[in-house]
Structures are given as structure tokens and as C-alpha cells.
Amino acid sequence: MSTKFAVSVRVGAGILMVSLMSFLSTAKWLKEIVYFDPRAVGTNKITRYLMRFDSLKRVLPDRGVMGYISDASVPSDSGKVQDIRRYYLTQYALSPLIILDTPYCKQVIGNFHETEIDSQTYRQWNVEVLAKFDGVVWLLNKNVK
């Protein structure tokens, strides 16, 4: 009788322990669910960021290689990651154009934080502005002199 009871307890404890711990871990998601704002659907960070390229896309060719310049974020490790992220997102938005992280291309995309950019920032790369889209995205041409 005691052996039967011990086996039942062991089996029961095993099942309960695994089930309970799994369920508690699953319950971690409840916080995510409760704090989710349905109004935020479609307006997440990346979707909003990609919108800045909508106007530019209309004037770009279907295929080709273009350069890329940007004003750097605050110099720090996280700033560096953010700069890389902005460049990658530019490539993601403008695919299948190939965007190189260099100003040394015939045409260059400028992707800036601010609408007002110090002219020194881009003149150092010897480019001229062809068009500005919403202030922060520029299409630039390499000056050939």
C-alpha cells in the first residue's frame, strides 16, 4: 500500500511540477498581452520609419547600386548600433536597389535625423542635393569635376 502510494505521489508530483512550471512560464506572456495597445497596430517603430522612404521610392530606378550617407547619432555603442540599424532599414525599404554604406557612388541616398543639415556635413563628400523628401531623406548626386 505504501509503495503504491509512493509511486502515485512521485508520478503526480512529477506531472504537477512540469505542468506548473511550464504554465507559469507561459503566464509571463500575460503581461505582454494585457499591456498591448491594439491602437498601436500598424504604427510600430519600423513601419513608421519605413514610411520616410515612400516618396523617395517613387523617383528611384527599379535596379541599381546607390550610395548612402547619414548624420551620425550621438557617439556611443548604442548610437553606433542605431546608425547601423538605420542603414539596414534603408536597404530593407529600398530593396531591390543595392544601397552601399559609402558616398562614393553616382547617386547617393541621404538619411538624416534632422531636417536642417549643416551643409558641411554633406559637402565634405562632394555631393549636390537633387531632391529632399520630407526633409530627412535626400537624393544626392555625386559631383563630377
Binding site: 505582454e32 498581452i33 498591448f36 491594439p38 498601436a40 497596430v41 500598424g42
Partner: peptide, 15 residues
């Protein structure tokens, strides 16, 4: 719970 959480996550990060 996982099904709803999955939906919440993909709506939060659609890309």
C-alpha cells in the same frame, strides 16, 4: 495564451 501572445508579438513587430 501562447496563441494570443504570438498574435500580440507579430502585431507589435510585423516586420
Amino acid at each position: 495564451v501562447d496563441g494570443v501572445a504570438f498574435l500580440v508579438m507579430i502585431l507589435k513587430y510585423p516586420h
